[in-house]
């Protein structure tokens, strides 16, 4: 929950109670006989209040099972959970007079520390990770649907490549050599050499070089009778790119060239130079699919971070409440006043 102005009332309330509790503890009238701690009236009160607050905190877990019951707004519960939880830690510290006590109480201390630290950690995460998700994952979708989305992306990728390149596994026949599609004098782009293996060599500053090194065309010249409508020619680089990089990336493998938007962009630029105009929409499609997959993976990572602390916080707090009740029962049994 974002800590904003609406927490003011709760925060002041907590501070006031903390101060009152501390004063009562410090000026405990029984401090000189029994000593400050859990056995004095003040100590017992602080301990009981701390247990009540902790029960309220745990009750949040139960309330979540019945969100449609009229038990108070979820925000009020959440604010109470945060502030009363913090207050209970302070009261526990006073109640135990900052001592470890016996084995059970030492364990309770450890549990309180872990629960509180994980809670504070989670709260801090909630201050900025949602904003991070908002800005860095514009294509965010539901977490539980991510797998379906990725599945669709993979399928769509196959479809696009088949549409533009004919087939995925077999190499395309290489097309006629084409004049370089970009202006001479452009800086050379470093590309993996094997992209260009079956394609015309990328034009690196001169039409002559391109023509000279081009292998003899395997397909008949364009004066042939109209071909049946098939995939546009010149998609081999795209196909190779898809087979070697995009498809594994979409399937979940790590490909550094696609892992960051910047690198993906430069790869895309190189690819565009190697493919003729009809193939460009195919490149658009494949690159945007990769981009979407990247975003979804980022979303999954961020959401895992946002929720991971709960795996520690919730089980430990249940264990804490069980043991705290055990402690309360046994301490009251053996209470000596």
């Amino acid at each position: 929950m974002l800590l904003d102005r609406k927490h003011k009332a709760w925060a002041w309330f907590t501070v006031a109670l903390a101060v009152i509790g501390a004063l009562a503890w410090w000026f405990d009238p029984e401090a000189s006989t029994i000593g400050r701690g859990g056995s004095t009236i003040v100590g017992l009160t602080l301990g009981s209040l701390a247990l009540l607050f902790m029960l309220f905190c745990v009750a949040l877990s139960l309330k979540r099972r019945v969100p449609h019951w009229r038990l108070g707004r979820a925000q009020a519960w959440m604010r109470g959970h945060i502030w009363l939880g913090l207050l209970s830690v302070w009261f526990v510290a006073l109640h135990g007079a900052f001592e470890r006590g016996g084995p059970l109480t030492t364990l309770l201390w450890v549990l309180i520390a872990l629960v509180t630290l994980s809670a504070v950690f989670g709260l801090i995460l909630q201050q900025f990770v949602p904003r991070l998700l908002l800005h860095s994952v514009p294509g965010e979708t539901l977490a539980q649907q991510m797998d379906r989305e990725l599945e669709w992306i993979r399928k769509r990728g196959e479809e696009v490549v088949i549409e533009f390149c004919g087939s995925i596994e077999t190499a395309q026949p290489s097309p006629m050599p084409e004049p370089p599609t970009k202006a001479p004098g452009m800086p050379p782009v470093s590309t993996p050499a094997h992209f260009a293996a079956a394609a015309p060599a990328p034009a690196q500053g001169g039409a002559a070089a391109a023509v000279a090194t081009a292998p003899p065309p395997a397909s008949p010249p364009a004066a042939a009778p109209p071909k049946p409508k098939g995939p546009p020619v010149g998609g081999e680089p795209l196909r190779r790119f898809y087979v070697d990089y995009a498809r594994p990336f979409l399937a979940g493998e790590y490909r550094p060239q696609l892992a960051s938007p910047g690198r993906a962009q430069s790869l895309e630029a190189a690819l565009r130079t190697m493919c003729p105009a009809p193939i460009q929409p195919g490149i658009d499609a494949v690159m945007s699919l990769c981009d979407r997959a990247r975003q979804l993976r980022r979303q999954r990572r961020l959401m895992r971070i946002l929720f991971a602390w709960l795996i520690l916080h919730i089980p430990l707090s249940w264990a804490l409440i069980v043991l705290a009740i055990v402690h309360a029962v046994f301490a009251l049994r053996f209470l000596q006043r």
Binding site: L2, P67, H68, P130, L142, L306
Partner: peptide
């Protein structure tokens, strides 16, 4: 508000539980 939303899906859960057919009318998309 996506700056506050932790994507916990409590809204959709509540919608589902508030209706006796167990279907959420809200899809967070």
């Amino acid at each position: 508000n996506l700056e506050k939303c932790t994507r916990c899906d409590q809204c959709a859960q509540a919608c589902m539980k508030a209706h006796d057919d167990g279907i959420s009318r809200l899809i967070r998309e």
